[in-house]
Write a protein that binds this DNA or RNA. Sequence first.
DNA 1: TTGCTAATTAGCAGGTCTTGCGAAGAAAGA
DNA 2: TCTTTCTTCGCAAGACCTGCTAATTAGCAA
Lengths: 170, 170
Amino acid sequence: MKAPAELTAMFRASGLKVTPQRQLLFRLMHENKSHPTAESLFSVASHHMPGISLRTVYQTLTDLSSMGELRLIDVGSGAARFDPNLDDHHHLVCQSCGDVRDVYVSGSGQLDVNELDGFSVDTTTILFHGLCTSCRGTHKVSSTVAEPLVGISKSNTSSKNTTNPKERMS
Amino acid sequence: MKAPAELTAMFRASGLKVTPQRQLLFRLMHENKSHPTAESLFSVASHHMPGISLRTVYQTLTDLSSMGELRLIDVGSGAARFDPNLDDHHHLVCQSCGDVRDVYVSGSGQLDVNELDGFSVDTTTILFHGLCTSCRGTHKVSSTVAEPLVGISKSNTSSKNTTNPKERMS
DNA sequence: TTGCTAATTAGCAGGTCTTGCGAAGAAAGA
DNA sequence: TCTTTCTTCGCAAGACCTGCTAATTAGCAA
């Protein structure tokens, strides 16, 4: 994602207006490595600009995504996350705390895919699910993976959305 | 995913009851390659068993997932999809029609990941986004990818959920 | 076959995440 | 300063999914 000043110029050049809300969000997202959700960015933004609306945060984030300045990532935790890192990279997702980290994968471009017959690949997304350093040995993994086949129905061990990811901003 | 008869035995052995609803769903999911959502499976199931509830479909699908008989996949299209294929495989997702196909990737286990420092990987998910054979040349790709930086805000070209995936069952 | 009990179903209410809409407000060029 | 057009805000609503509970039923035992 470009720097706030460049984004300002780009927006104006495109006939879009640069509001204080947008400027704040430009700054909060620039080089932000926390992969925030709209909500978590909203809560940080609210701290800096009390009246800002969640609607505006969503709007601006999707605008930036449409412009290719932000990457929208879906790690399956419910809410979309936004990543200003436009490099060719992928993500590590901690199954315990929900933390997301960028990761660079060598050779992901030439993954050997069988039976592609006719399908043309545009982008490849890789998600590594596991445990981050701080969660290793501390927590237990929420059951995304297979479980022993006993009493499931009523006493369902919930899977998705079990761990509410801790959100932090730089 | 095991065959209906085996699932029936498994369920009973675990003290779970095998209802007509469950049997129907076992049959509909067995060797189903369409990666249905709960909704789409529900609509097919409704055809066979008019009174069945969407709640029951969700329940049974999550139960089967918890037992490791079904894999829950999230291609970012909004609704979760269910895959009875338990082989080590990944997915091709058509950005035009939303179709999902299984794909076998060689060497995905030894992807060269840099800067893993401390993160332990449990499972790796790979999504190939592109165009399926029937959509190549026919449709245009919905803007998941970068767009030229012009008039975005109000005239937003919606991205997610633009294409209601066609659902079909075997 | 009948009876019993725990498991299941159906259906609705409610939760989360996100977008649509419209009135009021503000950026930016004239 | 004026005017036009874009934005913001806030609420309503939509999509997807889960919790709750009364009524029903599978499946075991007699």
